[in-house]
Every structure is written in C-alpha cells, then in structure tokens.
Design a protein around this nucleic acid. Sequence first.
RNA 1: GCCCAAGUGGCGGAAUGGUAGACGCAGCAGACUCAAAAUCUGCCGCAGGCGACUGUGUGGGGGUUCGAGUCCCCCCUUGGGCACCA
Length: 851
Amino acid sequence: MKYNPAAFEAKWQKRWEESGIFRVTADTEKAKFYCLEMLPYPSGNIHMGHVRNYSIGDAVSRFKFMKGFNVIHPMGWDAFGLPAENAAKQNKRHPDEWTYANIDKMKGQLKKLGFSYDWSREIATCSPEYYKWEQMIFIKLWEKGLAYKKKSLVNWCPDCETVLANEQVEDGRCWRCSSQVKMKELEQWFLKITDYADELLDFTYRLPGWPEKVLVMQRNWIGKSVGAEVVFRVASSDEEITVFTTRPDTLYGATFMLLAPEHPMAKTLIAGTEYEKGGLDFINETAGQDKADRTDDKKKKGYFTGRCAVNPVTGEDMPIYIANYVLMDYGTGAVMAVPAHDERDFDFARVYGLPVRAVIEPEGGKLDGASMTEAYTGPGKLVNSGELNGMPYDEAKKKIIEILAEKGKARATVNFRLRDWGISRQRYWGAPIPFIYCEKCGTVPVPEKDLPVRLPENVNFGVQGNPLDGAEDFINVKCPKCGGPARRETDTMDTFMESSWYFLRYCSPRNDENIFDKKEADYWMPVDQYIGGVEHAVMHLLYARFYVKVLRDMGYLSFDEPFSNLLTQGMVCKETVKCPNDGWLYPEEVKDGKCVKCGAEAVKGRVEKMSKSKKNVVDPDALNDRYGADTIRLFSLFAAPPENEIEWSQNGVEGCHRFLGRVYRLACQNINYLKTEYPEPAFEGETAKKILRASHAAIKKVTADIERFQLNTAVSAIMEMVNTLYSVGGALETENDKAAFAWSLKALFKLIAPFTPHLAEELWEKAGFAPFVSKAEWPSFNEAYTVSDEINIVVQINGKVRSELRFPRDVSQDEAMEAAFADEKVKNHINGKTVVKKIFVPNKLISIVVK
RNA sequence: GCCCAAGUGGCGGAAUGGUAGACGCAGCAGACUCAAAAUCUGCCGCAGGCGACUGUGUGGGGGUUCGAGUCCCCCCUUGGGCACCA
C-alpha cells in the first residue's frame, strides 16, 4: 500500500493521450473556456518556472473542464530566436535541427508532467506553415501604411550584431547578452504602433481582469502627455523653432530655449559664426554618446549657440542652448525652458546664470525668481503674465493656446513616449521579411501566391553578422512586377512578431487557407485566462494587444482585446552560495560550509531566481524521477499564492509527497466502502455529520479558491478534509456513517483531480469507477451541511475577548446576552462598572462596553 | 526623484471590520518497533505563572470604530517598474 507514483503516472498519461479526452472542437452549444499559458522558447530543457506556470494553468483548465466548459488548452513553441543561431555557429548544427530536437525533448518532459494539453493543436512558430501568415499580414500592414521603412538611429548590439527595440535595452545593455548597446544608423522596418497609442492606453482602463501593476507599467510605457506645440521665431531671422510643452501656462516664464544635439537647427544656427567650432564639438561629443552614457551623466551640460529665440508673448530674447539632456526622439527635440517651474531647467539656469522668472504662485505664497532654491512645479495662479495674471494655471493652459493659435503660433497636441516598433533583425533564424527591392520598381512585396518566403537551408553560418547576406540564391530574384533583376530583403522579423498572434492560430492550427478560421476564432477568442511571467508585462503583452487591434481593423477579428484575464505568476527562487574565489557554487561544491575547490569559506548569497549562471537551479526531470509529477505539481501550487515568489524548499516538496501518500493510504484502507452500493448519505448522527460537514465545506472552499486563483488555500482545504477523514476512519459504525465516508472519498478524488490528476485517476480506478475522473462532474455541495448546529460566541468587554460560550446555532440575542451576563469570567470583568453599550453579532460575538 | 506593491511565529503563508497565526515546513513529546526508518497521535507567537490564568503581539506613530492585520493620515523598510519625457 505504499504510494509509488512511478507505478502509474506513465499509464495515465498514455490513457489520456489515447482516449483523446483533451482534444476539443468548437461547439457553439457549449460555453467555452480558453486557458492559455505563455508558450515556451525551446531552449532544450524545461525549468521550474515552466513547471509552475503550467501547473497553475493545468489546475484551472482541468477544473473548468470538470465544470462542464468546452476547454481549449493548447501548447506550442516560440521557436525562432538567437540561441538556435548561436548553436549553429558554435556546434555546426543547423538551427532547424537544433530547435526541433529541443522541442522533442521538452515535449517529452512536459508529457511526463501530465498536463491536459490538446497536443493536436501544437504549433512551432519556425515552421513555414506558421510564418507564411505572418508574412501575409506584414504585406497587408505595408499596404495600409502601418509597416514602413526608415533610416533611423537604432540600438545596436555589437555582440548579437543586431538591432534592439527600446524595450530590449536594459540599463543601456542588451537584454540578452548584456553588452553595451551602441547607436547606429540603419534602414529598418517599423510597425506604426504609435497609431494605436491612444487606444492601447484607453483600454488599459477597460481590463478589469488584469493586475493593476501590469496596467500601470503599460500606461507608463505609452507615456501620454497632453500639451501644446508652440512656434518660436529665431531673433533677426525668418527661421522658426517648434517646441512641445505640457505647461503652456508658464510661457511668460520661458527665459531660454534648449535644443537636442541632433536637432537640425542646432547646426544651422551656429553655421558660420564664432560658435560653430565649439558647438560642433559639443554636438559630436553628446550626440555620439549612446543613451546610457548620456543619461548616466546627471550633470546638465549645454552650449550657447550665440543666437536667441523670441518669446511670443513677452517679446523678449531667449538665448538658445544646445543641451545634452534634451532628446531628439521625444516631442520636437526642442524645449522652451521655464526654470522657475521645471526642476531640470532650474538646474541648468543656475549653472549658466540664466534668468529665472516665477509666473505661477502657490496659494498664500510668494515666489522670487532670483532667490528661489528649487523650481515650483505645483498648482497656482498666474503672475508676471500680463493679461493672464490671477488666472488659475489650468485655465491658463487653454487660454494661452487659444491666443497663440489665432496667430498660427500654437496648437494643442498630445505626445507619447511610445515609439514605433522596429522589427528588422539582421539574423538568419527568424521569419523572412517578404519584400524585394528592384531598381526600377522600388520596394515590392512578394506576391501572395509565392508565400511563404522560406528560409534557405544551405547557408554559411561561419560568418559575422547575418548569414542570409551571403545566401546568393536566396537574395537574387526577379522583380515580381517587371521581371528584372532584383534583390530580396535579408532582414528577418523580431520574434515578438510570432508571439503576437499565436493564440489565434491555436484556434485553427492546420488551416491552410488563411491565417486562421474566423468562425473558430470568434468562438474561442478572447483568451479567458492567460498565465505567464510578469517579465512580459510590457513587450509581449503590448505587442499582442496591438496586433489584435490591427487584425480587427482589417476585418479579421470582431473583438478588441486578446486576453480577458491575466495572471502574472511569481518566480521560482532558491538560495545561492558563493565562494570568494570561485564565484557561484552548486550545493554539492560545498562541504562543511567550505568551497571544495579552494577550501575558502562559502558565503550564503541571496535568494534569487533560479538560473544556471547562479548555480541554484533544480532540475524538474530529476525531481519527477524521485517524487513523481503529482508531487512537483502540488508543491508548486501549495508553496505560495501564484503571484508570489516561491522559495524552493526541499522539505516542502517532501511534505507534499507525504501528503499524497496519506491520501493514497486513506483511499486504499477504505476502498471497500467505495465498492459497496450505499444510498445517498443522510445528514444525521455525529460521525456522519462530521464527515459530511468536512467534505462539503472542502468542496465549497476549493471551488471558490480555484475561481479566485488562491490555489494554495484550495490545497490546504483538501488537507483539512483528509485530516478529518483520518480522524473518523476507524470509527464508522452505522451504514449511514459508511455511506457518508464513501461519498466523501469519491468527492475527494474529484477535488484532487485538477492538482494531482495521476493519483486521482489511479484511486478512481481502484474504487471501480468508470474512467476518467478527469471527465467526472465537479462535485457540488449542500450549504446546509457546511454549518454546524452548535456555535461558539465570543464575549468581548471593552474590545477584549474575555469569555467564550457555546450555544445552539441561531441563538436569540436575549438568550445569549442573559447567558453572557451570568458567566463568571464576564461578571469578574464587569464587576461594579456600568454597562454603557451592548452589541450582538448573531452566531459570532457579544461586545460589552463598561465604564 | 516619480509610480505601483508588500511588511503577520523559527520559515512558507491563513484570516467577508468580529476569537490573529488555518494548512504545511521545522522543532518537541508520545504510540508502534529489539532498534531504526516509515506511519499514527498530541504540543508548538512572546513574557510571567506549577496551574486556572495574566500581560503582550500583525514594520513605527496617530486616527475612525463597541471592535482594526484589514479602513483613513503621516513615517520607515523591502521588492518591482519608470527615469533628464519638456
């Protein structure tokens, strides 16, 4: 009777697969539920983060399935990307071969965990049948003007030899390899995500099923600022400079102007003057720096151009400076500086001795530009502002735009921090961008009948940069328009392109007529529950939302947002150990607290996300061999709420294993009760009542807890139920007791099915029930059984618990009060004092206030 | 600097404004055993007391309330995000 999962887990995995119970088809008669976990990159091995992610998804999916939903639960592979190409360069293995071998291996690992995927819907994003549709959509985007090419300064990673999106630059370093990112000018393909900035932002207020922190991150990323563009004339010239400002109300306080070093006017203004040489030096020094260096330097630096702009309301001259902290890619690259009311401008003014004039005064305060020690950025009324004096600042914002707009010198406008999405990658292992360059016809899309543009197989990977650049057979083509000689685009697409729509492809993964079947997508989409790591809060989730909106506007889809509910699961962490000489250590490299290599004292590091480089990983496969799939799954659900970090605990895993052994023994010891036909148990007799109360309460709590993703407390509710069944197990006297026990055991098998499905199936079979428990109906509970006949009422005196009394349920206020005041302990605490107030909470407590 | 979370036993964590610490881990004791492992049962915030019990306790300080881990204000700490964004 020993719990030995190795004896049956594989059996159930095979039976689920052979019976095809998790294969689904659209059925408009049935309510659907789309449960999706973020698709993995086929690195070669699953890690504990995957296990946790998919265990959460599987519990939800199996629960909904038992609840009667038509559940779609697909899995696939985000198969393009850099590691495959690096493997090709290092090990002379083709990326294709490397990738599919990894997929094979990882698929085997996932299957050994018993997840309820519909494998018939599996996709790999690197297959031509998949990326064909991406290419088709890309051409449509180009036709609609949403995909375009431009020469631009791009973030360039010298090690990966590729362009990075802003989102892929972390602290000025490549998100993949951590090399210092440089700026480089290149012709690149972009998607106009900025056209959708407003809508993407608006909908962050219409996604109640998303965690607030993710929505906030997206809002920050989009970064909408409402303000105005104001045109300034350059003194003694016809030139004009337009600035963007969010504070047009402070225009009277604008005492100088700043230009980004890259601003075209910067060079124009100094051309042929004594400021030219110094100015050019300054521009080269600053503009050449990559963003990281420039933003590292907190010191504001500027260079006077020798020229002035004219303040359109005061008519005063404003010296124009080139400033390092002004960025060309935000706003217009030119700033009207209001030192009195902007911290950065204030610092700059103090360094260069420029005038500070306060134009907004807070209520009850007076500001003096000459003596201010910091900028005032709060609300207030206008001063030193001519006709606008005394006006509240928010009103003045509109008024000043109106006044200048009449003269054509200003307009209200909005600016976004969000940039267009650069999708060109100088890489082999990605979806080819389906365009051809012809000298006569220019940029020509590949005709739809010629799609997909397949990656050529025979290329030389032993080169620096993009292997496709050397693939002459691939590059040299005839122009589809004129038939003349032409060259193929060799850039491939950012891999975020594939993950922006894979959830749509799952709806009809083998469709060869179109990107997906609209009917199928209309039935299955949107995703009801999306689960994945919070590290995708901005990039992936924003791109996918954008993509869906674009497809909607092309008529492919009839909804706005892809993911109704989002759960961001926490990381799986473990303690690290470091040696002062040899760096991170594996646990087996430490003996008696010392490093086995050099004998130095090993230092316990912080608890950090499991990673190979920090040598604190735990291999799911090894755990599976030792404890079985159910134990790993249970631990990753029970150790903490899904959003929290899990700190790895070997003892915790063993505790879970022990619990499953307990369930196994409980079932085996009492299996005969299940093989007997009992009538429906009656809620009578002390033992039967105790059993039924425990099981119905557990059903109630587990059901509610899964719905609200409190999987850890759902598991503990099952543990409580098991504890109760153990406590009465030996004392079943009446037939009704036995009936109640049998009923409860059967319910228990169902309750554990979403969490530990193998064990549930095994016990279900042992009891002689028809397969599968996975398909069985989720148990329901009787509310009346979940409450007890007798209750404790707590007596508080002046807010402190002083006594506890036992009553029949629903005891009346009068009766309870009488008993309370007769209670010895209560009497002692009231003793001689006056009762001021009495409060009665039915079935809970009595609160007495005395003086 | 700005924005968002979160601070509860030795640990992971529970608690619709109503008995703080469910469940698990670790620990302690007992049963079974020649013995050990496994298993089962019990105890387990801190301080004082043989004890019934008393005091105290959810980062700190105020407040609302008969009653606050939970609501409000201020502060501290930690984690996450953004950062010369005009």
